[in-house]
Computed example of a mutant assay.
Amino acid sequence: MTEPVRIHWTEGEQTRSARWRSESGAAPPRKVQVADDTLTADAAFRLASEGTAILWRGDFQNARQLLQALARRTDKPKKEKKSRPDAAPVSPLDAFNLHRQAQSQRARTLAMLVLEFDGSHHIALRRAPDVSQACTEAYGPGDAAQGAYVTSLRELLGLISAHEWRKKGVEIAALSGERIHPHYGVFAPVRGEYLALAADTPLPPALASASLAFDIGTGTGVLAAILARRGVQQVVATDQDPRALACARENLVRLGLAGRVELQQVDLFPPGRATLVVCNPPWVPARPSSPIEYAVYDPDSRMLRGFLQGLAAHLVPGGEGWLILSDLAEHLGLRPRSELMAWIDAAGLQVLSRVDTRPQHPKAGDAADALHAARAAEVTSLWRLAAHAAP
């Protein structure tokens, strides 16, 4: 086992250290300054902008307020330079890259406010809540023998939010209002339009005689649950992420579907062939900036291309592949439609039909959003694919 990364700081004329923990994959800060309630927001912003971590020793609720103050300063609009009359307009791709760059810088700055935890996931600050359960769900059980660790307050708030999502769950209309409970690090099925596509598209007639489906990249297990509720007798759901498989297993048990859905930890396809193979890959072909973002970003369209290339070999005669995909990448200039069609053709597949729907999330109508033009034009589709008949 590799030794845990540690950060070091001076406090009370003593040199101290602790394990560095970051689920987002953030590098440990090189400089650490101990601070309390006397630190002003402006001074904190200067330190964070310079890459100096602020190890908080004051009141916990004051730390939350300070983080909000840092966010306001980070989000403050910068004065725009006057553009030349002949300057080319910003392309959608440039707008996306600038947006990602700003997001990354914002995340780095806000991650500079850090807290120390003991090995049992407790925080020794005034008015600090009990966060041990939220930390256990993300980090695993506490271990006092491993000693203290440090992580960012922003990450902790993400853990707390994920814990609440996990407790309350997400109501799924396609499951008659029953709830899916996402775990930390597993993409929550909050966009109901793509689930409605899977719930409403007519099933392949061949399922009547061979009722087996594959759900590739199952995540929370929501699509596998929808297929089982629609009458598919056996579903094999796959994922590479142990967290996703644990999440899917818990959801399927809660829904009473554990006997109908088999979970496998594999990359893409399980062995064998099925009558229906469903995949909802990450929609944006860009490099994730953290492990958690792999649910949203698919570097070089690896999962999408892998699904298409392997689909024909995993379909029974008369079977269908359902690819659920947004065209947001096309509107951002990241992947043209012609490239997608070329991949489908090269994989020996044909398009039987396509069912489209418009997004319903708030950002689609937010004109202030940096990517508004692309989001407003976005269409989510279920592509019904089949293998070309042998000549």
Rank of each mutant, 00 (worst) to 15 (best):
E3S: 12
I7L: 12
E13L: 10
E23A: 12
P28N: 02
R30P: 12
Q33Y: 07
A35R: 04
D36G: 07
T38H: 15
L39P: 04
A43N: 13
A44H: 02
R46C: 12
R46A: 13
I54W: 00
N62R: 14
N62D: 15
L66C: 04
D75M: 11
K78V: 09
P89S: 11
V90G: 03
A95S: 12
R100N: 06
Q101F: 07
Q105G: 12
R108T: 09
L110T: 03
D118Q: 06
I123A: 11
S132I: 08
S132D: 15
C135Y: 01
T136Q: 15
D143W: 04
A145R: 06
A145G: 15
S152C: 08
H163P: 01
G177Q: 09
H183V: 04
G185A: 04
V186S: 03
F187R: 00
P189H: 11
L197M: 08
L203K: 09
P204D: 12
P205Q: 13
L207S: 03
D215V: 04
D215S: 10
D215E: 13
G221L: 03
G221F: 02
V222R: 00
A224G: 14
A225F: 05
R229G: 09
D239M: 03
Q240K: 07
R243Q: 15
A246S: 14
A248D: 03
A248P: 04
G256T: 06
L257V: 09
L257E: 12
L268R: 05
L276Q: 09
P282F: 12
W283M: 05
R287D: 15
S290D: 15
Y294H: 13
M303S: 06
A313W: 05
H314L: 07
P336L: 10
D345W: 10
G348N: 09
D356M: 06
R358K: 12
P362D: 08
A367R: 13
A376M: 10
E378K: 04
T380K: 00
L382C: 13
P391R: 07
